[in-house]
Design a protein around this nucleic acid. Structure first.
Lengths: 150, 150
DNA sequence: TATTTATTGTTGCACGAGCGGATACAGCGC
DNA sequence: GCGCTGTATCCGCTCGTGCAACAATAAATA
């Protein structure tokens, strides 16, 4: 086993840990968001991303990248949310091929209702993960990624 | 914004980063494994997990936990792999309710063919992620999770 | 200016995977 | 015998994919 093989194995193990933690958290978020706010994790992600965007709007492609979805899945996702009145489509003034998606008032309201649920679940899931030896170190590392500028 | 609110926001941001990196890596793995070995990421995960297991066998429930899948999804997943001759089911001798899944020779062969593809893709995906500022710190942190005992 | 080419987004389709719930049954421990 | 656990199977549902066709607009080029 040379240094090179080690690197491969270290990467693989890191990936397994990442995937395991991701699966755990996503599972819990899915359950709580679904039962409390009738939102899937992706849907929450969209609303949240929009709310953190300047002017609360985003183009379809940005959205597709932010959610790691295909173009058609993104269209349908936005359709679902639009049907529920949580966001609207707006034509870009500058590039009229483009379409902005923008939160509506009730979208903002639902998001603000869901956010505490999301945050609490996240906290709980991370706490659980910390009890699992393989995941604990990653859990510890997460908050250090974006050190708060004191 | 007190200390408490900061913690919430730091967790949320950590989770977004984790999810983004996970999505990126999984997407690339999915494409390369699918095209090179006709395996999905979950399927590869199962084969890999089995290969790293003492005696190369695992019970359905362990598998369900390892893949973050439901019981019924696990059954179907194992069915698919069994139909392709990559693993077999074996009754537990001690607890005859339980079922062990075990790699077959051709399962091992396929895994060994797929592993380099997997590892190379993982390396490439991580390199790509490192180019993305929001993800770079997490990418850097990953290999440090399981420090090689020198 | 007129014509081509590229980009952005939508839609329809066939297909596959996962889910929860219900059901069934065998084997375990008491 | 009884209740619990481990597994399989079936159902209807949702959501994802890739692909191809299409419209509208922008950009490039002749």
């Amino acid at each position: 086993m040379g240094i090179k093989d080690d690197a491969v194995e270290v990467r693989a193990q890191g990936w397994r840990t990442l995937a395991a933690l991701h699966g755990l958290i996503e599972g819990e978020l899915e359950r709580s968001l679904q039962s409390e706010s009738k939102l899937s994790v992706v849907e929450y992600t969209v609303l949240d991303a929009l709310s953190r965007q300047d002017g609360w709007h985003m183009r379809m492609q940005q959205l597709a990248r932010a959610t790691a979805l295909s173009a058609s899945a993104t269209t349908r996702l936005v359709n679902r949310l639009e049907d529920r009145g949580l966001l609207t489509r707006i034509l870009c003034a500058d590039d009229r091929r483009g379409i902005y998606t923008e939160l509506t008032a009730s979208g903002v309201a639902l998001l603000e209702e869901a956010r505490p649920v999301h945050d609490a679940t996240l906290e709980r899931a991370l706490a659980e993960a910390q009890e699992i030896p393989e995941l604990a170190t990653l859990v510890d590392a997460l908050p250090r990624l974006h050190a708060t500028a004191s």
